[in-house]
Amino acid sequence: MSFLLPSLLGTGIFSVLPFADSLRRSFFRTVSGDFCGTENYRAVFSNEAFLLAVKNTALFTAVFLPVLITLSFLTAYFISGLKFMRVIRSVLLFPLAVPTAALVLVWKLLFQPAGMVNGVLTVCGADTVSFLDSGAAFGVLVGSYIWKNLGYTVLLWLTGISGISSSLSEAAKVDGAGRLQIMRHIILPNLKPTMYTITVISFLNSFKVFREAYLVAGAYPHRSIYLMQHLFNNWFSNFELDKMSAATVAVFGVILAAVSLLQRAWDKEARA
């Protein structure tokens, strides 16, 4: 029990307690300290920037997660049969180690209006796209973040896949099952716990995309990549704490709900 104490204490001080205070604050006005009920919440929910940011963030997560998971799974499956798996694993993990700030310049280089990606497009006969200043920025963000996290996720899948005893798939083959059938009926079900971890971790990381966005496009980027984190950051800089508290509580509630749902779904699966 004593093991837990310091951690609990610290977490309590730095996470739980302040959050309670945040909760309290969300019902008050920052400057004057007057009680104002749900006014902050109303202000937040009617705030256009907030709605945009939430929409973008939700959209990003909704796009990023499935794409990452499926892509990495396919890659992992593809690689799992190869000989140089170890080396490839290491290579794939490398992007994780690269500091974002270092890469930002390269992203700019690639995606600027006169950049290399546009060059490739022109060669292929397509039009150039203004990546950083239009809706395409969203795609750029998703793409670059997937690039960063692919290796990590693939590794997780790989460990999961290699965890499945080969005897099972051998037996299935003998029984005459095709590759696809093996995949659907043996591999996938056994990977459920891996998928859980992967989802959790990817979900966690998906919010960190703010770093990329901020370093590439600054505090006020193009509409399509104006995330919730940008909003919070700017509110903080402008010291609009009441709105922030209300939004914090709201977002917290949403995530709480999402995670709980996820947990319940998984538990149900596991039990079943």
């Binding site: 730095f14 307690l17 919010f207 919070f232 950051n233 922030m244 914090t248 977002v251």
Partner: peptide, 11 residues
């Protein structure tokens, strides 16, 4: 799992 921004204010 909470993004930093959520806990930012409390911190």
């Amino acid at each position: 799992l909470m993004p930093f921004q959520v806990t930012m204010l409390s911190q």
